[in-house]
Each structure stands twice: as C-alpha cells, then as structure tokens.
Design a binder for these strands. Structure first.
Lengths: 240, 240
DNA sequence: TGTACATCAGTGAACGCGCGTTCACTGATGTAC
DNA sequence: TGTACATCAGTGAACGCGCGTTCACTGATGTAC
C-alpha cells in the first residue's frame, strides 16, 4: 500500500527535484553545449554533492535520455497544440500552424533541438525503446492532417513520374501498412519530403550558417514554407 | 636566406609530421566524435609526449581549425573535380556530378562533414578569416555551373510569384553585387534552395534518422536529386 | 500518546582517470667559419 | 677538414583542473504498534 503510493507519487517532492535537476541540466547545455553536460556541474549549481544525484538517476546517460525524451515530447506538444487551435476542416491552416510550431519550437530551443537532431553526444547511445515513441509523436499531427485533407480530396495528385522509383514506392506502401498510417504512398512521400526540407532550414538557421547566404532568415523561412505548402496544395488563401 | 627556406619548407619533414598528426586526429574523431578530440590521445597514438605537439600547433583550437579548413577544401576539391570531368556545355551533367560529389564526400566522410556542419565543438570558436575562404570554395562550382547554364539560356524562368518576398529579392540582388556573383536573384535563390535540401538529406542520412522514415536511403536520394535537378531544369536526359 | 524502527535523501572522502598547458631540459642536426 | 655554435624536435615532471562513480555514513522523517 505505502509502497504503491511512493512509486506513483512522482509529481510530489521527488518529482519536483527531478524537474529542478533537468532545468539546471538544460540551462547548462545552453551555455556549454550538450556534449559537455556534467553531473558534477549540475550538483554544484543545485548546492548538492554529486553523489546525491544518484538518488534520482542511475547514471549520467539516464539523465540524458530523460532530457531527450522530454525534448521530443515538448516539440510534439507544441505541434499538436498548434494544430488543434485551428478549425478541423481548415487543412491548409492546420498544416501551416503545425509546420510553424515545429520550426518555432526548434528556433526557440536550439540546444534541445540539437540534442535530439544534432551531432550525437560522444559515448552516449540512446535506448531506442524509450525514445522512439516520443519521436513518433512529433510526426503524428502532420500525417493526420494530410490524411484528413486527403479524405476531403484537397491534396495534390501526383504527376505520373514523381515517385517513379519502384524501391521507394514499395517502401512507402510498406510504411502505410506496417505503421497503420492510412496515407497513400504519394502523400507519405510528400510528408517526408517536407520534413527533410524543414529540417535543413531549421538546422542551418540554428547553426548560424544561414545568414551569410540567406540574409533575412525569417523572410527566407516564409518563402520556403510557402513553397512547401504549395507543393502539398495546402497554401492558406490569405497566407502572409 | 636560410630562414626563408625553413619557413617555406612546409612539405618537408615538418609538413609530413603535421599530416600524420591530422591523420591521427581524424581517425580519433571517427571513433569518439569530434567533440572529444584530445591532444594527449593524439600524442599517445603517435608515441610522442603531449607537449611535443606544441611544436606544431600553438594550442588545441589551432589543430581543430586546421582540420576544419582541410575538410572544406577536400569537399571543394571533390566537387570541382566532378564538375570538370564533364564536358563544359553539358550543364545538367555537370550539376548532377557536382551535387553527387558533394553528397558522396559527405556520406563517405561523415565525421568531417559533422565537424564543419554539425553541432559545434564546445568551447571552440572558428576564426572566420581562416575558414570563410574554404567555405566559399565549396559553393563556387554550383554558382559557376548555374551561371554558365543561364548564359546558355537553359535554366528555368521563374513563375511570377515564386520569389515574391521583397526582402528576399533585395537580399539576393545584393548578394549578386557584393559577392560579384553574376547570377540573377532568381537563380541565386534556386542555388540556395538546392543547397538547403541537399544539406537536410545529407544530415538526416549521416545521423541515421533517415532509414526509419525513408527506407532505402540511396533510392530516396536518387529521387530527391531528380526533383532538385528538375526544379533547376537541369535534369540530364538519360538520368538514372 | 509514546516508543521502536525502517526508509531514504544527502554527505564526504576516496578511486582512478583524463585533460590542456608550462617549463627547464637534453641531445641530435646541421651550419658558419 | 675541423671545431664552435645555434637551432629546435622532443622529453619528463609538474600544475591545476574536472570528470563519473563507489562506499560507508548520518540524520531527519514518518510509519507501525
């Protein structure tokens, strides 16, 4: 009885401390980079001795995993919320809101985005069973919007030869079945394409490689989003 | 006289040692990640004491800078060579060769690509005056091909509203003037777009995020390259 | 209500490790006369 | 041709630092009877 209570009581004092640990960890990642994350430094800032942290995490990697899962979930939350704030049958607005939320979260949390999508931390290996579900959450809204828009018959129809590689077609079709995603292979392909383009845009922005080539990063982003939405035939009428 | 000889003689014994240092550094980056690069580890592998390295580099950061500049130059060399191996008036073939060489180099040297385009090494700041010229070399072939193709009247002409953001248009036009790049703002914009898309493709591949979504990474790459080339109206006739 | 006991967050010392960098030095090489 | 000398790659010891993790412990809290 008491045991059960203790185990479940993770939003209590214990949970609060775990949250403070993660806060400090994130703030240090921001300052020195995720690769230099250090238990001792975190303990120091919390006015605690380093071994005390072992009450909350079995080792450094467990903390990193927790931070990674949190980041994916925060990103997914942001995208979901943006989608749901639009009227359900405004597919173009929903897609734009989702893309915009994804990008905004990344740009406002560059360290977290690099933690999940940048160069891996030396010596750390993510336990797939813990991260994969969180990763998937970040994709779900996009797929759902495309599916619903497809049902409504709003999406582009592919030109004959757009997805012409048989291997690709087979893979996308397999994805549709194994993941239970009710998207045509073509729209699957478009979703993945948009994700790739968005990713490139975000990373080059975060890593500060954009300004030299692109000048006004925000203007360039608007331009590129417009192209992506157009390619999906989901450009809101009053866009911009 | 003797002094001048010594200073210039960098391909001699001294240069050879510097090269061995860099080789070992690269091989260790491959194993433990660029963020963990360490002078002592390099010295150990060279059967030398760590302070001996200070004969060749004033500090760790100087070595990193050297590695970064080398990487950009190697990438640029690969792209240049691929371009020049094509007949000068085969613009589509040249563009494909250049893109393919860029991507191949990145995929075959993932650590070096992450060194120059991944999460920065904690505590290291690149001296722009040393890196910028090497960075620029990697872009030159693409711009040159586009320019020559444009002169030949082979490129796509923009649809009315494609580059519709006044800020963007102004920036691209400014780039044309200040960098002395004789490209129309429109083709400038397309070059940058292709680079962004290629970058996203490469990074997600190198970081191993592609397989889950994309399946056959090579097939997907071929598909996307095809799209890029098509967007530039530079798809070789016998492509694939 | 009062006492005995279990729980468990946090301590402090220690282990063994690696790091970048400095310093005074050795000893081979090769040049100048 | 032979000797004095400068050069400079590499050494070995040391500085001061930070790291993750272990271990036996203290001492407060709160529960059971």
């Amino acid at each position: 009885m008491a045991r059960i209570k203790v185990d479940t009581d993770d939003d209590g004092k214990r949970g609060a401390i775990v949250n403070r640990i993660k806060e400090v960890a994130r703030s240090q990642m921001r300052e020195v980079g995720s690769a230099s994350i250090s238990l001792r430094a975190i303990a120091r800032e919390l006015d605690i001795t380093a071994p005390a942290l072992y009450r909350y995490y079995p080792d450094r990697d467990a903390l990193i995993t927790d931070l990674i899962v949190d980041a994916f979930n925060a990103l997914a939350d942001a995208v979901e919320a943006a989608d749901q704030a639009q009227p359900p049958d405004h597919y173009a607005e929903r897609m734009y809101a989702a893309i915009h939320a994804y990008r905004t979260w990344a740009v406002e949390h560059p360290t977290d985005f690099l933690l999940i999508y940048g160069t891996p931390i030396p010596g750390y290996v993510a336990p797939r069973d813990q991260t994969v579900p969180a990763v998937q959450r970040t994709f779900v809204p996009f797929v759902r919007i495309l599916f619903e828009a497809d049902q409504a018959g709003v999406l582009t129809v592919p030109a004959e030869d757009e997805v012409d590689d048989p291997a690709m077609r087979a893979h996308f079709e397999a994805l549709v079945y194994t993941e239970g995603v009710p998207l045509s292979y073509w729209h699957m392909s478009i979703a993945i394409d948009v994700w790739h383009r968005l990713y490139g845009l975000i990373m080059l922005h975060i890593l500060a490689h954009s300004p030299a080539t692109v000048g006004d990063v925000e203007a360039y982003y608007r331009l590129k989003v417009r192209h992506m939405l157009k390619d999906m035939n989901l450009l809101p009428e009053n866009f911009e």
